[in-house]
Design a protein around this nucleic acid. Structure first.
Lengths: 349, 349
DNA sequence: ACAGACCGCACAAACGTTTGTGCAGAATAA
DNA sequence: TTATTCTGCACAAACGTTTGTGCGGTCTGT
């Protein structure tokens, strides 16, 4: 269908070899004369030649294509990351094939296999979590790989994450600093790295503020909004309900807001709320939500950079683990209430 | 690096040809004995063979990969569509390479060229709008192509859109039916198909309700939230400000909500608001927003189906234009006010 | 005038598949 | 027995590139 080197060779009277070299800017190295080069380029221009990247890929064993595997494309956090990653990949000359695992390890595996057989040059994965055994042979095979958002302890591969524990700690510590004692947490998908860390940060903040954890205040089992909604409803039913809720994701927070509204309560007067993951449209919500913002641009940027690095010096290079700092953005969703000792000021620095 | 047909051929003692035919289930056609076939499969299993799709792509001239070009991946509407399209493509055995144009025609062109040279089997584009000249040679070359969300009059290619005009009409007619006379519109990117149609629907609804259009009430120049914010601020400054705002996108509505809040006003008491594009988290907003919902699943689904159809019977098939119906979802963001004639009931059916 | 260096380019193999055709040997038919 | 068909598989070309090597011819130096 398309114009090939052959066509240009025939029309220009030179060989395929020469034409190819002109396109690869190898004219100096292989001593192609200037006139020949420019003539060939002219002919190619007339024919509107575009090199066949499949053939190149076969010959060169690189496709200039990256794979990106995410748990849920439509999650705004991931969507934003995808955009950043796509843009950066493109500036480095790479295309991006995007796969959605729907938080399903089998699907994740399937996608990995497909991507491998399509010869992608590297892979960015936001793994669904729990187990990493299916990723091990990727690193064994030396496939350039970087994990994002969630990582695994034992895996010898680069990763970029945010300090989930610290983010959660700061959020909950801030809530406690505002005088709250009954602070609930709505968890995300259990046994995932991000969730474990955030719960851990929650516990530590509680501990630091001398609050003993209450199992009934620890609910939730998914990062999505429906789960946030039902978990929040559950919390609001408790006889002595929490005065504040720490939502471990923005989507959970959205669900919680809806539940709170339906219960006829308002934020922050009746109940306070802090979210992990900043919501871009936080200012448009029922109440501007205080949230732990992740540096999304930076996450996407370094993910691509780490990957490209690995691709360049494929083979030997130690994996790098980059951990970025989240940032608590204080808005209006936490009410300051009297502490037992009577102080009302915000305590956290 | 990888196991090839060659390896299996050597290890099994048969030829590459035979091995290939076994994998392509051509054993009957080419009379490969059952024992041979199963033995080859066994050997392949032991070696963990995965066919090299690049080589197949070169030979077969199909890559089982689709291209998807969108103006903004992180826009929740597009993000949701991408997810649907990815899922459907995958069930049909296709991967998806996703490109973001950032509403920039030059970038759109660049992506198209890259995708072409990578030999994708088909292309789904949500074009940035205005001109379609750069798409024409795609249809000339018989590239399977379907346009989504925005389409062009003259272009001989399949498309799936929603009835933007009708959606806008119903929204504004509903607002008018609630008694509003000063109804503003915040437009999206000018000269795009979607924007033109929505403005047209707005005008028609005004006309039907005997309201003469006021140019000062027609503001906005982009579908994103920042534009919505500034446009809304502008509207609120007008001496006799509108009683209702029709936002031509969900993002615009979010920006408008923020502006309204900052002005110290509330929805719907002080000002009413309706959005085009339903926001998934509408229930978590300052006020549950009445919105024109687009059937996103159906859009994505039919887009993929139309594309696959075109790929199957490439060559001759007339382009199909599918136009889906949007649906007005009434929530709480429009206040019913007294009509000049004293009636307060909602009028629209 | 002659050896060597240099210039400008082409041959051919390779990347991993798919597929039309051909070719032995076995089975069947006459 | 011989002619024919069938069975089971392999040869080789092709897809569009890239690249190590080689080969004639011109130029330079002496």
């Amino acid at each position: 269908m398309s114009i090939t080197l052959h066509d240009i060779a025939r029309k220009s009277g030179f060989s395929v070899t020469t034409v190819s070299r002109v396109f690869n800017k190898q004219t100096a190295r292989y001593r192609i004369s200037r006139e020949t080069a420019s003539y060939i380029l002219q002919v190619a221009g007339e024919l509107n030649y575009r090199p066949n990247q499949i053939a190149r890929g076969l010959r060169l064993k690189k496709t200039h294509t990256l794979g990106l595997i995410v748990p849920d494309i439509s999650n705004p956090f991931f969507a934003y990351l995808i955009r950043i990653i796509q843009r950066f990949s493109h500036t480095f000359g790479y295309s991006l094939v995007v796969c959605d695992t729907d938080e399903n390890v089998d699907l994740e595996n399937e996608h990995i296999e497909v991507l491998r057989s399509k010869g992608i040059d590297g892979l960015i994965i936001m793994p669904v979590g729990q187990s990493s055994s299916h990723l091990e042979y990727l690193v064994l095979e030396n496939m350039p790989l970087v994990l994002v958002d969630r990582c695994f302890e034992g895996l010898q591969t680069s990763s970029v994450t945010v300090d989930n524990r610290r983010g959660a700690f700061e959020a909950v510590d801030y809530i406690a600093g505002c005088g709250h004692r009954r602070i609930a947490i709505v968890q995300g998908l259990p046994h995932t790295y991000a969730n474990n860390e955030r719960v851990q940060g929650y516990r530590e903040a509680l501990s630091k503020n001398g609050i003993s954890p209450d199992e009934r205040l620890m609910v939730g089992n998914d990062f999505r909004s429906e789960a946030g909604y039902t978990a929040a409803r559950q919390l609001l039913k408790i006889e002595s309900r929490p005065t504040a809720i720490f939502a471990t994701s923005d989507l959970i927070a959205l669900g919680a807001i809806q539940a709170i509204r339906e219960e006829g309560l308002t934020i922050p007067e009746d109940i306070s709320l802090v979210a992990f993951d900043d919501i871009e449209f936080a200012m448009s919500l029922a109440c501007p939500i205080t949230a732990v913002a992740q540096p999304k641009e930076q996450i996407g940027e370094t993910a691509v950079q780490l990957l490209i690095e690995q691709i360049k010096n494929r083979g030997k290079q130690r994996p790098k683990h980059v951990m970025l700092a989240p940032k608590l953005i204080v808005r209006d969703s936490v009410r300051r209430i009297d502490r037992p000792n009577g102080r009302t000021e915000r305590q956290a620095g």
